[in-house]
Amino acid sequence: MRIVRFILLLVILLGMGLGTLQAAEKVAVRLFLQENLDPQGKQVALDPKMMEVLDYFERRAGLKFETVILPWKRAQIETLDGKGIIYGFSRSAERNRVYHFSQPFVTEKIWGVTYGSPKPKYKRPEDLRGKVVSIGRGFSHGMEFDQARNVIFTVQEDSASIIARFKKLMAKRSDMMVWPIRGLEHTKDVENYLNRVLVQESNDPELKGVHFDVTENPLFLDTTHFASAQGKYIDVIAKIDKAITRGKKDGSLAAVLRDYH
């Protein structure tokens, strides 16, 4: 009996030691996230679903993220200075020259959002010729979008306040706002999400009862990545790539991304 107890105790101690070792082996890295401001200019609480996704990558890649919320352009500068990696980043020709990207872990559909009657019929990028398109400051929405910006349409970069961007659209200071959505496939689903979740739940009196329209189809497709400066955090991005590959193979990545809009 004593021998059995000794063996059980040894197994427990070894398990505890292994857990400590695994925790110690986690690579700590600063992770830059986009700020999202309310109408008063205060940071909105981080999306619990996004935190679930980040926790997934910590566990699967053996990392420990120190999250830092910054204005998006500032986050990009800090990343280029080699001070950490950035999350939720999309590719562009310019960025490809200076950033090292992970594999894509999600594909976003880029929808057009409009306000007022009659509803514009924007079905393809060419339909936006001569129009003013609102995007978040410091954002890119993929290679095709970047090829069209300020060539087919004019881009205006707006504040990090979601509600302020909707109000600008109402004021006709832009013809259309682009909005990336993960997971939703149909116009009505996207409209319901934007109007019921983002707009009405903001409880802004100026937006009470206001309805925004969404284009019949996505105008662009974009992929989302982790990224670092070229030559920096290569080992960290490699760990993330392995986690993405395994997650796609065993289905766990798709599961954690479900309902992540």
Rank of each mutant, 00 (worst) to 15 (best):
D235P: 11
D158Q: 12
E191R: 10
K248I: 00
E216V: 10
V132R: 13
T154N: 07
D222P: 05
K119N: 13
I244K: 13
I234M: 12
H211V: 10
F226R: 04
N150W: 01
R182M: 06
S202K: 07
F166G: 08
F220T: 09
P120D: 03
E191Y: 06
A171I: 12
E185V: 13
F220G: 05
P218R: 02
L184E: 08
M170H: 00
G183S: 05
Y193S: 10
V132A: 02
V151G: 00
N217F: 06
S161Q: 12
E191A: 09
A164H: 15
V210C: 00
A148Q: 11
A148I: 00
T223L: 00
V197T: 15
P205C: 03
S140E: 10
R129S: 07
M177V: 02
S252G: 08
H141G: 02
G209R: 11
K239N: 07
D127H: 08
I135S: 15
I234N: 14
P218G: 04
Q230D: 05
R165S: 03
Q156C: 01
A243Y: 05
K188T: 15
K242D: 15
N192L: 01
G183Q: 04
K188H: 15
N203W: 11
N203L: 13
G183F: 00
P120E: 06
L219N: 03
L169G: 06
D241T: 10
D127K: 09
I234A: 14
R173I: 05
S202E: 12
Q230E: 13
A164C: 07
W179I: 05
K131P: 12
L221C: 05
M176G: 00
E191M: 14
L198R: 11
L207S: 08
H186Y: 11
E216K: 10
D146M: 11
L184P: 13
D250C: 08
D175V: 06
S174T: 15
D235V: 11
G251L: 02
G136I: 12
S140L: 01
G130Q: 04
N150F: 01
S161D: 13
F212A: 10
V190E: 01
I162T: 13
N203C: 03
K123G: 13
I163A: 00
D235L: 02
I234R: 15
S159R: 08
T245N: 10
A227C: 06
P120H: 03
Q230S: 03
L207E: 14
K123E: 15
F226V: 02
I244Q: 11
G209A: 06
D175P: 12
V133P: 07
A160C: 02
V178Q: 04
F226K: 09
R124P: 13
V155K: 08
L169W: 00
D158F: 03
F153I: 02
K249W: 04
P218N: 04
G247E: 09
E191F: 05
R196M: 14
R124W: 04
M170F: 00
K119R: 14
F220A: 07
P125H: 06
D250S: 06
P120R: 08
G251F: 02
N203T: 07
D127F: 02
S228N: 08
P180C: 01
I163E: 01
E157A: 01
Q156D: 09
L198D: 09
F220E: 06
F145W: 09
S159D: 15
T245Y: 03
Y193L: 13
Q147Y: 02
S161H: 12
L184M: 11
S252Q: 10
